[in-house]
Design a protein around this nucleic acid. Structure first.
Length: 203
DNA sequence: CTGACGATTCACT
DNA sequence: GTGAATCGTCAGC
C-alpha cells in the first residue's frame, strides 16, 4: 500500500494518467472516519486545448485556479448546485490538466458511506457516478486544493494489476457541449465492473 | 449586481 | 424517457 508520488501525477500525458489511475485505491479520512474504494472509472480533461475542460483557452478564475496547481492536488467543485465532483490535478504547475474520478468500488468504511448517502445496504449505486463517489467518501468543495500527499485525501497503489483488454475506452459523459472534443476517447473503465456506470448515453 | 447555466442524480410518468 | 432540484460560478452590464 504505497501512496502515489509526485512523479506519478506530474507526467505530461493526462490520458495516460487517467488510465493508470484505474485499479488504484482512493482513501479519505474525513470527519473522523476512513473510507476507501478502488477506482474503476475515470475521465481525462486535457487542459487549455480541451473544450470540455473548465480551463479551456486558459480560463483562470477563483474556481479553476486549482487546476493550475502542480500535479497531486484535489480539484473539487459543485455541479448543478448539488453534486460535488472530485478531480485529481495532474502535470506541472501552470498546466491545468485533471482527471475526474467517476466511480469507485467500495473497500473500507462501507458503513460510513451508507450513513453519508442515507442508503440501507451496499449495492452498485453507492459509489457509481461522480456525484455519488464524492458523497460516499465525504468529499466536498472545501477539499478543493487539498494536497493528495497529506492525510485527508490520497491515492494508494496496492499492487493491483489490470490487463489491458479489461480496460474499456469510450468518449466522455455529459460533455456534449464540447463540440468535436466530446468525441475524444478520454474515458476509461474496468469492463464488466458493477460499479461502472452504463454510460455514455446520448443526452 | 444580475441572469443563465452546469464534467448530475433521482423521482416520477 | 422526462424533468426538477438547487446554488456557486462567471460573464456582462
Amino acid at each position: 500500500m504505497k501512496k502515489l508520488k509526485v512523479s506519478f501525477y506530474a507526467r505530461k500525458d493526462v490520458v495516460v494518467i487517467a488510465k493508470d489511475l484505474i485499479g488504484k485505491i482512493l482513501v479519505t479520512n474525513i470527519n473522523g472516519g476512513q473510507t476507501s474504494g478502488r477506482i474503476v472509472e475515470t475521465e481525462a480533461y486535457n487542459g487549455v486545448i480541451d473544450k470540455a475542460s473548465h480551463a479551456f483557452g486558459g480560463r483562470y478564475t477563483d474556481r479553476t485556479k486549482v487546476m493550475y496547481m502542480p500535479g497531486g492536488h484535489a480539484y473539487v467543485y459543485l455541479c448543478y448546485g448539488i453534486h460535488h465532483l472530485f478531480n485529481v490535478v495532474t502535470n506541472v504547475q501552470d498546466t491545468p490538466h485533471a482527471v475526474l474520478i467517476r466511480a469507485v468500488e467500495p473497500i473500507c468504511g462501507i458503513d460510513i458511506m451508507l450513513q453519508r448517502t442515507g442508503k440501507k445496504k451496499l449495492d452498485h449505486t453507492l459509489t457509481r457516478g461522480p456525484g455519488n463517489v464524492s458523497k460516499a467518501l465525504g468529499i466536498q468543495t472545501l477539499h478543493s486544493a487539498e494536497s493528495l500527499f497529506g492525510n485527508t485525501i490520497y491515492i494508494v497503489n496496492d499492487g493491483f494489476k489490470i490487463a489491458d483488454q479489461d480496460i474499456g475506452v469510450t468518449s466522455r459523459v455529459g460533455v456534449n457541449y464540447a463540440g468535436e472534443d466530446a468525441q475524444l476517447p478520454y474515458r476509461f473503465y474496468i469492463k464488466n465492473n458493477l460499479f461502472v456506470s452504463a454510460l455514455p448515453r446520448s443526452r
